[in-house]
Nucleic acid binder design. Structure first.
Lengths: 352, 352
DNA sequence: CGACACTTCTTTATCGTTAAAGTAGTGTAG
DNA sequence: CTACACTACTTTAACGATAAAGAAGTGTCG
């Protein structure tokens, strides 16, 4: 059932039927009624969205690209908050939110065609590695795009916190408390799934910008305090699950017996605390642990986790606003780093 | 930059360029390479998704309709789990997930055009009131559609639990413990925002199927035990927030002093417990409270909440499978109610 | 050598809509 | 009574792609 069919039935031009739906002021109220009646009878439910999009050259949809299979996003409290912020803006602007499917193929690579085939007016790219082909495909479309957290690409609007400064701040907190023996627990530096100690070259070449910057922040703080960076063990986990934090602790403690652990995420930090507690170390008396993100569980943990707070919903909000104003052709707000703050709870104290 | 432009440049027909992208076996490897090179040079990044959708008469996108503004969904643990299940299926099937925007207008009504204008191959309707115009618009499109939780519409595939049986089961648990003085805390019966005691006629006319069925289940159990239903106070809250549960408790306790409270959601139940505890009633010694949903907080609550467990992710999974198989034209699995089970924790015990 | 398959590319027609420009007819002001 | 605006519609021409069917050339087999 098409516009044209209704037009024929009513005895008017297709354009008039189109106008009945889109510009009521262009025809008489009476004819408009008649058109709707006929449409109802013939089971026509308004202009086809695809035909309309083709002709108007816009879809009124924003695509979201996520660094992992989509379903993981709904397991990740930060991603969910982000989506909440983003969706409140897009909804307000009457834009749909298309979660672009990009399951990993057999090779572990994600099909970049997902981005080429998405019928959208713009993209929000969330926390993606610098080298994803998916990202390249999305940027290739030359649609308005906003990148969140990573990667930072020349000329592409960006939303995120100042990861380096925030990491520096948390390391300084521990330095002020008097710590000197540090260990660091990082999530992935590159998407190659490696696990274990990462040496400085690998740290500097990390393809995840966020990991790279946080390590730089820690390094700057520790070096400013006169410590030797290459003696600080950096354990790289292939993800950010609590279990991985435990494994990292298991690898780090026997050899290094740090008095302070800097974790790149709260999940990792909580894993470290779990392992420590189970192995007779008390936190923070024997060892201080600091996280990053301030997830809800951080408050209720035992002890409550000292961490860097960042507002994920605000990121979504800002990303949404930036994209919407770009879609409208306005300049719009641009990339100021969002604020973070150190939340001191119970997992840090002076060294024993 | 279009297919035709590339075709012209390479000196072949548009169809051949289309085939280069979609059916590599239809042309020589060498020509295909040449086409891609030219495309690269001219900045063409593959067939336009909208044009392609129009011609193929499919979008490879599934639309999701939610009973509230979209951004609320990301605050609702059940909805998030549901989306996780759903997205894992759609992603596997290489389908996008379009979150359809339907902010409430000035009148509180949601614009039904959101559903008419969504470029999708099918819909998943999540937890929507029977009378939403948005729902009507979606069903009007005659696309494959699966409804979750509510409403139950003739001929539309449905996924959900047996709410009546589950409610009955939880009431029976309290009856077995020996309770006789009950009160019920419900979320909305209709979307009119009313708050306060709801009499039986209002209960029976509830436009939210889930509310209606759960009340029926409670009623059946209590009446079977010889209690008089119309003496059981049913307090209707206009939503499901914890704060509303507190308000309900405040309204119910002074007058009725129940020994057992049946709440239609865990959030409401937790609100009731909070109020009771603060007002010198201990749970479960003075009053037993039972919830519905088994949200994560239920375990950690003080006392841990007895509740009806339902698997939200499984709902999403099943809804996704049903829709996908329908999109493929297969019959596919259909509507068996999903299992629930009573999880007895610390918030229920025999009456004082 | 003719029939038939196979590969590689082309032709034609259409998917459903709307921007832009145009045409009557009707009123209204100078 | 002419010019000009205004209302209510129509005409034309895309938007960008692909299904289906066809054609030209090459090889193969009895």
């Amino acid at each position: 059932m098409t516009l044209a069919r209704i037009a024929e039935e009513v005895g008017v031009s297709a354009m008039t039927v189109s106008n009945a739906y889109n510009r009521p002021d262009q025809l008489s109220e009476e004819l408009r009624e008649r058109i709707f009646e006929t449409a109802e009878q013939l089971g026509y439910h308004g202009p086809d969205p695809v035909g309309r999009s083709l002709r108007r050259q816009r879809t009124d949809v924003v695509g979201v690209l996520y660094s992992n299979p989509l379903s993981y996003a709904f397991d990740d409290a930060a991603a969910v908050s982000f989506l909440r912020g983003l969706s409140s803006v897009t909804e307000e602007a009457d834009l749909g939110l298309l979660l672009v499917p990009a399951a990993r193929g057999v090779s572990g690579e994600r099909d970049p065609r997902a981005a080429s085939q998405a019928a959208v007016d713009g993209f929000v790219v969330y926390s993606m590695s610098d080298e994803e082909p998916l990202l390249k495909a999305a940027l290739g479309r030359r649609l308005p795009t906003v990148v969140v957290d990573q990667p930072l690409k020349e000329g592409v609007p960006f939303v995120g916190v100042d990861d380096e400064a925030a990491a520096r701040m948390s390391a300084e907190h521990l330095l002020h408390l008097g710590h000197e023996r540090f260990a660091i627990v990082s999530f992935a530096l590159s998407p190659d799934g490696r696990e274990g100690l990462a040496d400085p070259p690998r740290q500097e070449q990390a393809s995840f910008r966020v990991s790279r910057l946080r390590l730089q922040g820690y390094r700057a703080a520790l070096e400013d305090a006169g410590l030797v960076w290459c003696k600080v063990p950096v354990y790289e986990c292939p993800g950010s699950a609590r279990e991985l934090g435990r494994r990292a602790a298991e690898a780090l403690f026997p050899e290094n017996s740090p008095t302070a652990v800097l974790a790149l995420s709260d999940q990792l930090a909580l894993g470290v605390i779990e392992w420590a507690t189970e192995h007779g170390l008390s936190v923070p008396e024997d060892v201080s642990v600091i996280g990053f993100d301030d997830i809800p569980e951080a408050t209720g943990a035992e002890p409550p986790l000292t961490t860097v707070h960042q507002d994920h919903a605000a990121k979504g909000l800002l990303a949404g606003q930036m994209l919407v104003s770009r879609l409208r052709g306005e300049g719009g707000p641009s990339a100021e780093p969002l604020a973070t703050r150190l939340v001191v709870r119970g997992s840090t104290s002076p060294p024993p």
